[in-house]
Design a binder for these strands. Structure first.
Lengths: 334, 334
DNA sequence: TTGTAGGCGTTATCAG
DNA sequence: CTGATAACGCCTACAA
């Protein structure tokens, strides 16, 4: 933990100027003798270049930041896990921000991008306000947003397609003969909550099913909230299927259905969303709409690398295809 | 995304020197008039301090790095989730390294600490080699290791107590009348694998149970490996309980037991280790030895903060208490 | 090929 | 209280 040597230290030891040291270290044309002297000195001293000083010159930090609501949420974990290798291979470190879905926190992260501690920011806001859009426009470094932003927003954008996703799920339930398909959603003022509410309504319409408000219940995106919401829903009506806005909600629904003595999937089929690691572990295993968390993370990282390579390209929008993963909670036992 | 203003820009605009600007920005005693002029100018220009330049001067980055084998592993996720708020409250950002348990990768991270991109490193190596110990000794910044290191190693250390943990589990199984307690472990050359093997053997001795090699099987730390190992074990003997070295292995064991038509816990009780998010979701819900992943993460972050505040203090060792969380896989249905 | 010197944006130490 | 000015460690013209 002693103080590290600098190019000056090496220069003295090798009996050359700091310019020569820098040249050797950067593989610029230099005489054999100098190269050897510098290499030896650097080796002996255990020299490690100071990336901060280098960043000050180059205005590059080789770090990319990712801001998410909660590092404990499996969806974000899947994203991080997918970004990591992409960024690493390109020589970037990943910095994490957990914002607890606090809007001021998120805006703060965007503002601090100006501090230049990172070359770019990938952000997945759970709510999207006017202030977010302003902050995107004023950001001092490239921003990639995971979650739909309005067209024309000057950022690269990776989108999930909940519309198609929910359609896949409802088609599946319909094909199984289910007609009273309930929906346990998260808050409507969130990006996913709003998107999924629209998607559910559209799917009902397309299937020619009636819109029954009694079949819709809203809670937060966690297991306990999902359980409470399901309880409220069951208290007033009897669905033969439950679509849930994420897997945690679905787990809560499974808890309540089991407690009520209802069989899954015989009495009530259940579908989750996000296809997290929890889905194949649950009992019964959980059918879930995979919105491609991992792929969204990967694509976001790729967009960021492209943007860092060419800052002036047109903003791009990438949409990731959803997929329905059928398991025991809708079909037989597993 | 335009070029940002610097203190020089502000100084010109406010008609003062850069020194005065710096003083105002750092709240050092300054005259009212100067303060106002600088504040106004900074505001108008949308000034944001450059943290890289500040770091160069102060040799502080306000970043702490965490190196783990796999960001997808729930144990590490729990650690990250617990470190995050501690570090954040102290004004530090968290940087992530996923090393895929590659030793060269880990050593590289340690070496690159010399680049000073982070003020300190928290690392949780899955294997611990001689080279690791050397690298710890030579590290250019504080290192906190999660996982036992030999006494005398010059780093702060957070340990789990697998010995007590396995003892709790085996006591529980013994109390339930189980006498043929199998053990599905991970590789013996890993830190947790070795510790848990010793702990299992010790617990058997203390309970006065015979050591039957047929009851021990080794695979890797993932679900499929746990399943395969369990299959091998069942092919040669019939345990009435299975202790598993982590929750993923335990899930694999549950898969196999179910496939073989064995009832859990009636025929075979199952205990996992780490008490991850997966344990309460599994079916039956999984009894698991909580080795305090979250608390280990939290304590590691705290040790790091202490160390950064006082670099010369004696290296500290913190041991986190294990806890047995009893669920359906050992006791009734749940 | 090599060395000198200036600058990246801040902080901090001096005189004034 | 304020303004020059010298670092921090590195890169890079420009000169020699």
């Amino acid at each position: 933990m002693r103080q590290g040597p600098t190019i000056t230290t090496i220069a003295e030891r090798a009996g050359v100027s700091i310019a020569s040291v820098s040249r050797v270290l950067n593989r610029l044309p230099t005489s054999e003798a100098t190269v050897r002297a510098v290499r030896v000195a650097a080796e002996e001293l255990g020299y490690v270049p100071n990336s901060v000083a280098r960043s000050l010159k180059s205005s590059r930090t080789n770090q990319v930041a990712f801001a998410m609501a909660d590092i404990g949420n499996p969806t974000y974990v899947a994203m991080v896990r997918a970004m990591q290798p992409v960024l690493k291979d390109a020589g970037f470190r990943l910095i994490l921000h957990s914002t607890d879905a606090d809007i001021d926190d998120e805006l703060d992260v965007l503002r601090r991008l100006g501090e230049r501690y990172a070359d770019g920011l990938i952000i997945s806001p759970i709510r999207l306000t006017e202030r977010h859009l302003e902050a995107f426009a004023e950001a001092r470094a490239p921003v990639v947003v995971i979650g739909s932003v309005p067209d024309g927003t000057p950022v690269d954008n990776v989108r999930a397609d909940s519309r198609t996703g929910l359609r896949l799920a409802l088609d599946h339930l319909y094909a199984l003969g289910r007609r009273r398909i309930g929906f346990v959603n998260g808050p409507l003022d969130t990006v996913p909550g709003a998107a999924r509410a629209r998607a559910y309504a559209d799917a009902l319409t397309e299937l020619g099913l009636p819109h029954d408000p009694a079949l819709i219940e809203i809670g937060d995106f966690y297991r306990a909230d999902g359980a409470a919401a399901t309880r409220r829903l069951l208290a007033r009506t009897r669905p033969d299927a439950l679509m849930c806005a994420n897997d945690l909600i679905a787990l809560g629904a499974l808890d309540v259905l089991r407690a009520e003595g209802l069989r899954v999937p015989e009495d009530v089929a259940v579908v989750g969303t996000d296809d997290t690691d929890l889905a194949p572990v649950a009992w019964p295993t959980l059918t879930s709409v995979a919105l491609g968390s991992a792929e969204r993370g990967r694509r976001a990282a790729e967009l960021m690398l492209d943007r860092l390579a060419d800052g002036d390209a047109e903003p791009r929008v990438v949409t990731v295809e959803p997929r329905l993963v059928v398991r025991g909670s809708t079909k037989g036992t597993s």
